[in-house]
Amino acid sequence: MATVADLTQGQKGIIKDFAEHVLPIKLLELGCLPGNRIELIQVAPLNDPIYINLSGSHIAIRRSLAELIELDIIEENQAL
């Protein structure tokens, strides 16, 4: 199962349904809801944290949290 932590720079994905109690409510409020898009913008120099665009919100989260968000990665050709 792919998670946000598996994205490479510039790659996008669509959030899948997830176990709701796992994620902090703060993240949901910022738009981390099933069906929304996530794009990986940048990975910090030591590979952690990661900087994402979460349906318009630009935030940085740690890898450990990113691993909890499951998604379907959008392949490049599909996005076009």
Binding site: P24, Y51, H58, A60, R62, L65
Partner: peptide
């Protein structure tokens, strides 16, 4: 539990 989140404003 660690929850680290920081907004990257424009």
């Amino acid at each position: 539990r660690s929850l680290f989140m920081v907004e990257m404003p424009t």
